[in-house]
Simulated assay, not measured.
Amino acid sequence: MTYDGERPAAADLAPRLVLATHNQGKLAELRALLRGQVAGLDVDTQVVDAGAVGGPDVVEDGVTFAENALLKARAVAAATGLPAIADDSGLAVDVLGGAPGIFSARWAGRHGDDRANLELLLAQLSDVRDEHRQAAFVCAAALVDPGARVPETVETGRLEGTLLRQPQGEGGFGYDPILRPAGLEVSCAELTREQKNAISHRGRAFRALLPAIIAALR
């Protein structure tokens, strides 16, 4: 960065990368991933969320996680002229053929009602034996660069596990209290933020996308 006295020059504070979300947890995760990866990039001022640059609200009418992620990234990149990242994620249950999938956030009929979604899913699976309760959190992360330094890129991350019969833990959100990651004895809601980020579907997708992000910012 360039400094004018003790204050950064205005040009140095201009956003260079937009994450198409208003979720500050996702933004913090992306900033942590990028910290120190791109010379001259101040992640705390130049990696921003959609609200900071007036990004549009986007109707997520794709039929896959990847389609929805690309819809959001394309819209924000077009509106801001900046490289944009977006993700879409949900829970895929084996015995339900991958559902709730893209409908995870509105499985019970109302968008964002975590408790109702979780309770409905548990009721639907109440007769499913433990050995058949495999599921995974899935995330598709997309990068769209209006400057065409890199092509549109989508990467996917998964967190495999099994579904519990009752919620466990107070952390996280959504279906976190009922997914126990493979190899662990706790639910996602019982992990610290650092533990969850290290193995999460979103963390894995963002890390896979990192080379394309770095190329778009050079």
Rank of each mutant, 00 (worst) to 15 (best):
F65H: 02
S187A: 11
T45N: 12
A79L: 12
H201E: 04
G112A: 08
D57S: 14
L122R: 06
Q134E: 13
A75H: 09
G101E: 01
L27K: 14
L96I: 04
R16H: 07
G54Q: 07
G62H: 02
G172R: 01
G36K: 14
V76W: 06
A32C: 11
A215D: 15
R115W: 04
A69Y: 05
V59A: 14
T64K: 10
W107D: 00
E185W: 00
L71E: 01
D49Q: 00
Q46C: 11
G147I: 05
A141V: 13
G90W: 09
D113H: 08
F137G: 01
S200D: 04
A86R: 12
G54M: 02
V93Y: 01
V47D: 03
G161A: 10
L179P: 10
A116M: 01
L209R: 04
G157F: 10
K72R: 08
L164S: 12
S200N: 09
G157R: 03
A215H: 12
T80P: 02
E160Q: 11
A99S: 09
I199M: 08
A86L: 12
R110D: 11
H111D: 14
H201W: 05
I178W: 04
G90P: 11
D44S: 11
S104I: 06
V93W: 05
D88T: 04
T21I: 09
L120Q: 13
G101W: 02
D87M: 11
G147R: 14
Q24N: 03
F137N: 01
G101D: 02
P167Q: 09
E131C: 07
A77L: 08
G147S: 13
D87E: 15
G157H: 01
A140T: 05
A39T: 12
A10E: 15
L121G: 09
R204W: 04
D87P: 03
A32I: 11
F65L: 06
E60P: 02
L13R: 15
Q46W: 09
V93T: 02
L70M: 10
T64M: 07
Q134T: 15
E194W: 03
A79K: 14
Q134A: 15
G112W: 08
T192M: 07
H111F: 14
N23G: 04
V38M: 05
L17V: 11
D61H: 06
G55V: 07
D87T: 12
A136Y: 04
A198T: 07
R193K: 15
C188M: 13
G81D: 11
A10Q: 12
G90I: 10
